[in-house]
């Protein structure tokens, strides 16, 4: 995307530069020339070129987006995430009654996790940059975000929608366990 954008930028700049560099000798007036100019500039570069590029890009984006959708599967784990000013609370479908505060949310590594995101007060946004894009926490709605950590470890997470004075510090951590660690976490006594 960056390379394509750079190429288009360079193309436009070269065309602009040439406009100032060309001598007046090559210019011919008349309706025929006007029509030729319209064909090249407007129908060619103005209509056909962006239509083709954008159609390809949009199709690609939709295919990628489709792959990221939460689809049901045998090993999907569901974690609830509730945002509030300025903390997150996480609940676990596999361990009813368990709730952890913002540090850390726990999840298994190597298995897809559906995060059911909602908000207790204002609109928040749930974002773990290394695991997935962001999804808003809207009061009265539950949004499902599919994340998957391939390696066990800690992943930094952020609230990503301005939600008042505590916004800068609105952080959490997702801790991905290996299979044994996840079982141990689920088996822990409810405090």
């Amino acid at each position: 995307m960056f390379a394509g954008a750079s190429a288009i930028l360079v193309l436009v700049m070269v065309l602009l530069w040439l406009a100032f560099r060309r001598g007046p000798a090559v210019r011919k007036g008349g309706p025929a020339a006007e029509e030729r100019d319209e064909r090249i500039w407007i129908k060619g570069l103005g209509l056909a070129f962006p239509l083709a590029t954008l159609a390809a890009l949009t199709a690609y984006g939709l295919v990628v987006g489709e792959r990221l959708l939460p689809r049901p599967g045998p090993d999907v784990v569901t974690v609830g995430a509730e945002g509030r000013q300025w903390a997150w609370t996480f609940t676990y479908a596999d361990a009813p009654g368990r709730a952890t505060g913002g540090h850390p949310a726990t999840s298994p590594a190597g298995r897809p996790v559906d995060v059911a995101i909602t908000s207790a007060d204002v609109i928040q946004s749930f974002w773990v940059p290394r695991l997935a894009g962001k999804l808003d926490a809207v009061p009265g709605h539950v949004n499902i975000l599919r994340i998957e950590a391939w390696e066990p470890g800690d992943y930094a997470g952020l609230g990503a929608e301005f939600n008042g004075p505590g916004y800068a510090g609105h952080r959490f951590t997702v801790r991905a366990h290996d299979a044994a660690g996840w079982e141990a976490f689920l088996a822990e006594e409810t405090p």
């Binding site: 436009v12 065309l15 602009l16 040439l18 406009a19 100032f20 060309r22 007046p24 210019r27 020339a33 100019d37 319209e38 090249i40 500039w41 407007i42 570069l45 103005g46 209509l47 070129f49 962006p50 239509l51 954008l54």
Partner: peptide, 20 residues
Amino acid sequence: AVPTGVQIFAWIGTLWKGEP
């Protein structure tokens, strides 16, 4: 972006047509 592109290239074409 398409109608925007039409305008951008119409302007560049105008520059080519005249003596900027």
